[in-house]
Amino acid sequence: MPTCLIVDDSSVVRKVARRILEDLDYVVEEAEDGQEAFEKCRDNMPDTILLDWNMPIMGGLDFLKHLRAFIGGEKPYIVYCTVENDIGQIALARKAGANDYMMKPFDRLILEAKFDPDRLAEAS
């Protein structure tokens, strides 16, 4: 079964995303910020990551840079999730190593499309 790490400081976002991803047969872990997420990745690198932009302690962009520089950190497929509709921020995330992005609020159809296992298999 594929694995996904949901990284978001909102417990509501994590709960909603977890429910949808588990319905897609993902094994899901959660982290409240980039630092916790990086520690979890060091212990067990996930296949995919749903990553929030703005978080305390370590934000999404810093997490991306640290993860992609870490041995094995090139592996996860990362979907950057933001409330910002700023092309510049999206470009920064892509440059730092995000594979895709989506806007908040998201719904089941959007998340299912981004994390469809067949789509991700084609991307790797």
Rank of each mutant, 00 (worst) to 15 (best):
D23T: 12
G88P: 00
G97F: 09
M45A: 05
K40H: 08
S124A: 15
A93S: 08
K40C: 02
D116M: 01
D25M: 03
A69N: 14
G60E: 00
M1I: 09
E30H: 12
I6N: 01
R94V: 08
E74W: 06
A98G: 03
E112G: 01
F70W: 10
G59C: 10
I90Y: 01
L64M: 11
A31V: 01
W53V: 00
N85V: 08
D116E: 06
A93M: 06
D86K: 11
G97Y: 07
P105E: 04
L5D: 08
K95Y: 07
G59V: 05
L111K: 02
A113V: 00
G34D: 01
I71R: 15
A113E: 12
I78V: 14
E122H: 01
M58D: 02
R119K: 11
I90Q: 02
P117M: 00
D86T: 08
R94L: 11
L24N: 03
F115M: 06
R108V: 08
L50W: 05
E29N: 08
D33Y: 06
S11H: 14
R68H: 05
C81G: 06
K104V: 06
E32G: 14
K104D: 09
R42I: 07
L24I: 00
L21R: 02
T48L: 00
I57V: 14
I57K: 15
K114L: 04
G34H: 00
S10T: 11
V27N: 12
E122P: 01
L109F: 11
C81W: 01
I49V: 14
E112Y: 01
A123Q: 08
D23H: 13
E29Y: 06
D8F: 10
D62M: 12
E22P: 04
I78L: 11
A17V: 04
W53C: 05
Q89M: 13
L50M: 15
A17S: 13
K104N: 10
L5G: 08
F70V: 00
N54G: 05
C81V: 15
G59D: 15
M103L: 12
K95S: 09
K40S: 12
L111H: 00
T82G: 10
D52V: 04
D107G: 15
A17L: 04
K104R: 15
V83I: 14
N54T: 11
E32F: 13
V12Y: 10
C41Q: 02
Q35K: 14
G72E: 08
I20H: 03
E22Y: 03
E84M: 15
I57R: 14
R19G: 07
R14C: 03
K95F: 05
V7G: 02
P76S: 05
D23R: 15
F70G: 02
A69Y: 06
D9M: 09
V28S: 06
A113I: 00
Q89I: 12
Y80A: 13
R14L: 02
A113F: 04
D47E: 13
M55D: 06
K114D: 04
R108C: 07
R94C: 03
K95W: 02
R94Y: 10
P105A: 11
A37D: 02
D86S: 14
M45G: 05
D86N: 13
R18H: 09
D118W: 00
I78P: 00
L50V: 04
E29M: 09
A98W: 03
A31N: 05
